[in-house]
């Protein structure tokens, strides 16, 4: 409300010159805008359009969503892995964010660095690193066998488990950051007040801290889930070609069996799924405002 008032006030005094000034500013972003539309948005729309033009014009490709077992399996696998990854990444990320949020300012800086460092390492490098760790003769299996805990190597990679491990590792920092931001906004006096009113530490967490950090949890969940829908490199390497997720299935359709229409169709479905998730989520964010959590 106050921002609306401010805008009106600022707009009133000098309307005419401001238009010219704005036109000048818009001209500055014009090259970037043209570059984006010409080189990024237009080709993408073109590729997506292939889904209704190849091999014949019409919705034939979309009909396959209902009939083709291969594409259905890819979608179900993608959703399943996406949900499992999101759940685990949120759980690990929440604990991590909680520890960071309650640490001293100096310790927080080190924690953040530790959370961010993996983000700077190439996803390819990380995927191969997991392969060397998880394969039959890898460090994990060798270690467990030497310790006498298992007799035969566990199948930790080239299956869904491997994909989930690699994806969770990639996603945890993305889960931590939004949750940490919302946890840092929680007034520590609220926690003290709750204890002073007679609540145990656990009740304070359950009734005060957790509800107040929930918007961050939702934001992290949406972010991680959307990311995992489009994952390509990690599932391709750690799945060993046996578990096909949407992105790899699209790549296979287009590059290996040259069925552009089918590939473009699933790509379109993915884009629509992501936009829908975001649309639903923006409602959730508005809900949060209504709740008055920001005040």
């Amino acid at each position: 409300m106050s921002s609306a008032v401010l805008t009106t006030r600022a707009a009133v005094p000098a309307p005419v010159p401001r238009h010219f000034a704005n036109a000048g500013w818009y001209a500055l972003i014009l090259p970037a805008f043209l570059l984006m539309t010409a080189i990024y948005v237009a080709p993408i729309l073109q590729v997506l359009a292939i889904s209704v033009t190849e091999p014949t014009t019409g919705l034939d490709n979309y009909e396959r969503l209902l009939t083709n077992a291969g594409v259905q399996r890819a979608i179900v696998t993608t959703l399943r892995i996406g949900l499992i990854t999101t759940a685990i990444a949120l759980l690990l990320g929440y604990v991590l964010a909680y520890v960071v949020a309650l640490a001293s300012p100096a310790a927080q800086r080190w924690w953040l660095l530790a959370v961010l460092v993996p983000l700077w390492i190439s996803v390819l490098v990380r995927a191969f690193a997991w392969v060397t760790l998880l394969r039959r003769q890898g460090l994990v299996n060798q270690g467990l066998m030497n310790a006498g805990i298992i007799d035969a190597p566990l199948a930790l990679v080239w299956n869904e488990l491997g994909i989930v491990i690699g994806m969770v590792h990639y996603m945890v920092p993305y889960a931590v950051l939004p949750m940490l931001a919302s946890m840092r906004e929680i007034d520590p006096r609220l926690l003290a007040a709750a204890r002073g009113l007679g609540a145990s530490r656990f009740t304070v967490f359950r009734r005060v801290f957790f509800p107040l950090s929930a918007p961050g949890l939702a934001a992290s969940g949406v972010l991680v889930f959307i990311f995992s829908l489009g994952f390509y490199i990690t599932p391709a390497i750690l799945g060993g070609g046996r578990t096909l997720m949407a992105a790899e299935w699209i790549k296979m359709q287009i590059l290996d069996i040259v069925r552009w229409g089918m590939g473009a169709m699933l790509a379109t479905v993915l884009v629509i799924a992501i936009l829908t998730t975001l649309a639903v989520f923006s409602r959730v964010v508005n809900l949060k405002r209504l709740f008055g959590a920001g005040a």
Binding site: R189, L190, V208, P211, L212, F291, A293, A295
Partner: peptide, 8 residues
């Protein structure tokens, strides 16, 4: 100080 009312 600042009341510390639970905003939710």
């Amino acid at each position: 100080q600042g009341y510390a009312l639970f905003p939710h």
